[in-house]
């Protein structure tokens, strides 16, 4: 039982759980660029939160299934058609064998997740319970191409309208990413003292279209940086680097593990999901917080997300 990619955008990936322990080989942990939306998509079809699923940015794929399955899209607002039907985001639906699913025209936010009941797998298998959801490195690191196919382990669950309602309630977090100029909270970066931090937070930057899972480029008024070089060192998801031209590049979820640009700031963990939903040309601004504030904000968010999750499982 397979799904086949008839068409695909440049930024469509099969996503498994983040896998740590390999950064010393230059391999980022990866995982979903918006882990909260990915978790909700999985829960909407009855999967455990880290079951492999499809992530797509701005331009979605066109796919076909060989078997009847239960599916759901969650995250950015795309136009979704399954056969002749229009499917709203967050609604579980039965995708029938031979039907074409087309995820197109992203209208709001950036990334959408397609989850299928039972998961989407690299290899055919008989016992899904024994399967590790971790992906092989080539799949982990490279986008899906036209004509690629993946395997399903169908365990159809009934589409649930109740779940869909709960999921729509949880879109509240996505709204944060959609306001005209969202605020991204920062802790000081390792070369923070190279820069004028007040100047940085008073500026607004625009998301460049050449942004992807590797990094988010920002344009705007360059900030002053000393003409110094530094020795390359560890960087991570959310590190805000300043290029020689004085413009920020934020390391993405699939970005490099070491880098030689100075870092003015580090996006707090609570705001990392938001980076995955920033749209090209959108404005962003930054705000400094203390480590205590960063933990408080994260704990509050985790509580909220846990609550949604419990309601989606119920």
């Amino acid at each position: 039982m397979k799904i086949l990619f008839l068409e695909t955008g440049p930024e469509t990936y099969l996503i498994g759980p983040a896998k740590t322990g390999q950064r010393n080989l230059g391999i980022p942990p990866g995982g979903a660029a918006d882990p909260i939306a990915a978790m909700i998509a999985n829960r909407l079809v009855g999967n455990s939160p880290e079951t492999p699923l499809i992530e797509s940015a701005l331009l979605g794929p066109t796919l076909m299934t060989e078997t009847d399955i239960t599916a759901c899209c969650f995250g950015a607002k795309f136009q979704i058609r399954c056969g002749e039907r229009e499917i709203p985001v967050a609604q579980t639906f039965v995708w029938k064998s031979g039907e074409i699913l087309k995820i197109s025209h992203c209208q709001k936010y950036t990334r959408i997740y397609l989850a299928i009941s039972g998961g989407i797998w690299e290899q055919e298998m008989t016992n899904v319970a024994n399967q590790s959801p971790s992906l092989s490195l080539p799949i982990h690191l490279t986008p899906i191409q036209k004509n690629d196919h993946f395997f399903l382990h169908s365990s159809p669950v009934k589409p649930s309208s109740l779940r869909s309602l709960q999921a729509i309630a949880s879109q509240e977090l996505l709204e944060e990413a959609q306001i005209e100029s969202p605020t991204i909270h920062l802790l000081p970066g390792l070369q923070n003292d190279w820069f004028d931090n007040n100047e940085f937070c008073q500026s607004r930057f625009q998301v460049h279209s050449a942004s992807n899972r590797l990094g988010i480029r920002l344009t705007g008024t360059p900030i002053a940086r000393p003409q110094r070089e530094m020795v390359s060192e560890a960087i991570t998801w959310g590190s805000v680097q300043i290029t020689n031209e004085g413009l920020p590049i934020i390391v993405g979820v699939g970005g490099n593990t070491i880098g030689g640009y100075p870092k003015i700031g580090q996006v707090i963990q609570k705001d990392l999901y938001l980076l995955g939903q920033l749209r090209p040309h959108q404005l962003v601004q930054f705000k400094w917080v203390t480590i205590d504030q960063a933990w408080q904000m994260l704990e509050l968010q985790q509580k909220k997300v846990k609550n949604w999750e419990i309601r989606l499982i119920a």
């Binding site: 322990g21 950064r23 010393n24 020795v231 390359s232 060192e233 560890a234 991570t236 070491i258 704990e299």
Partner: peptide
Amino acid sequence: LIDLVPAYLSLGVFVQPDR
């Protein structure tokens, strides 16, 4: 501990995501 990232004169030590 989740990851160690050595690079020349520095060692990045990444930890589980909690206070």
